[in-house]
Amino acid sequence: MPRWRRALRRHDQWVAAACFLVPAMLAVAFLRFMPAVLAVWEAIHVAGPGWPISLRNFHFLFTDPDFIQALRVTLLFSLVVNPLQITMALGLALLLSRSLPLVGVWRTLILLPVAIPQSVSAVIMGVVFRPDGPANAILAMLRLPPQPFLTSPLQALPVIILILCWIGVGYWMTFLIAGLKEIPRALYEAAEIDGASGWQRFLHITLPQLQRQLAFVLVADTIANFLIFAPVQILTQGGPEGSSNLIMNDIYTRGFLYGDPTGAAAETVVLVSVMLVIVSIQFRLMQGRHSV
């Protein structure tokens, strides 16, 4: 056996690991890391003579009423949509991890919207919530007045949140059901013998045992919701009056409709920074609870 082969053999494990990892690492480097670096560079680079770096794109953003409104709308949206989706997912997971009749059918039905592309769901829901659509037909059947839904600055964002819950809750529910299945039955039995009520069992057994899955769902859901674009673009284009202009839609408008790529790059940097801050706070909170 030649020497190089013997040497290779000694490092068999490492070679195998590298073979598996390299494609993923390359993908991360070229598809994630490089665009991020490029976005930062585009945002701070100034062509022409003099110092090549400036914060004037950021200065402009924070004086632009559209950006301020988009930031405000996105934060409000996140504050509502994330707790709402996670609570609904947890509720459904608890319900569907019990031995209900036809439980498989219910789970499939709730998970089904995940299998439909977001853009298709948005088109379908756009029809449902049209002023003359089925949603208003149902209201009329219940003798309630028709609603403007997506054409009203007060209702557009809540309707989009509702649609995103319909799309996303089943997905997050699946992770939580898997977590619930892992909790040892013995813990519940012991608590029952000690006379713990249903609520006490949920609070002191289910929640702490589910913490890892909940942490993942919270972080992943928060990121996914910061990056919502297709439903907004298809349903409202950020309107009426900017009321549903989530930051991803604002970046798109700036970059591709107004033709301001450096402004859009700066806005992307702001979005990623806000996301990093919020996600690290979430991690810290979850870890803090874990150590107690």
């Binding site: 402009f60 632009d64 009423p65 559209d66 284009q237 900017g242």
Partner: peptide, 29 residues
């Protein structure tokens, strides 16, 4: 976008003012 908002019922004076501010911001770029 402004015409779409007004057609959907937005008040005229604030909508024009809003569009005016948006235009000034994008023209400054």
């Amino acid at each position: 976008k402004m015409y779409s908002d007004i057609r959907n019922g937005a008040e005229v004076a604030p909508a024009l003012k809003r569009a005016d501010a948006q235009l000034r911001a994008v023209f400054a770029r």
